[in-house]
Amino acid sequence: MNRVTAAPVKGRDFNSWIDKRLPVLFVAPVVGILLTLAIGPLLFIFITSFMSWELVSAAAPQFIWFRNYLNIVLDSRFWNAMKNTLILLVGGVGLQLVLGLITALLLNREFKLKRVVTSLFLIPITIAPVVVGFQWRVIYHESFGPLNYIIRMLRLGNGFAWLADTRTALFSILVAEVWQWTPFVTIVLLAGLQSISPRVYEAANVDGATPWQVFRRVTLPLLKPTIIIVALFRVMDVFKIFDLVFLLTGGGPGTASESVSLYTYINGFRYFSMGYATALAVIQLLIVTIICMNLVKMMKVRRA
């Protein structure tokens, strides 16, 4: 009797052992990879940011404590890059959210060809940023670009040097960024909208709420967690904006459209000031972290 039951009990023991440790087992590889690929380099960067390490000079790297950070604070080119980045951040993410919400609301209705239209929205997201950069470079081209062609055709003027003009360079980047990422915002918000129970809308309609009130008092609050998540993604992404800037203007003219990431890159790989570049990177990391923590906190407040 005992023997007969012994085996299954053992099997069950193993199962429950697995059950208890399953989460740990699942997470372990990720933690391992994170440790080697993320935390390791991060530590390296962190340490380097306290050093003077010029690859072009023969001098050995030197530990200089906070000197790099001090220099950054006093560096007006850094502040200029910061300003550009924030403009892109606020303008870009803001526009993406507003446009994304509007398109998501439109797509959430029933209409013919809904599937086709929704899939068309996926296209910009799937294109590599490099390709997007070149595509917009063509669009903005002063003499051959379709944009100026249209302007001339409509006799609105002679066209602009979109990317070479200090007044329009940053703005042009922003447009390209919004073009590429609004559809992503749309798709995520659409998923959020579809998870709201239709019963709630029925109730609101019966309760006498106008379409605007339904939007303000029901849709928006219920969509808020989704909005925050998608904003989070976009903020992190735009803050690091590099490829579009690099490809479209290279930060120019002058430093008119230089972003912090680009400035970091220039320091590291054009001036080869490793210490200064890594200090810039650390500052960016801190800022992104602070922004994200606040957004996550907003999400949690709603939960409680």
């Binding site: 129970s197 019963r199 709630v200 029925e202 109730a203 609101a204 019966v206 006498g208």
Partner: peptide, 20 residues
């Protein structure tokens, strides 16, 4: 539309606003 009919309704499945 329902809101134009001047009616009040209690729903079978409650249909409460989950965020309120």
């Amino acid at each position: 539309e329902p809101r134009q009919r001047d009616i009040a309704m209690a729903f079978e499945a409650y249909a409460l606003y989950p965020h309120l």
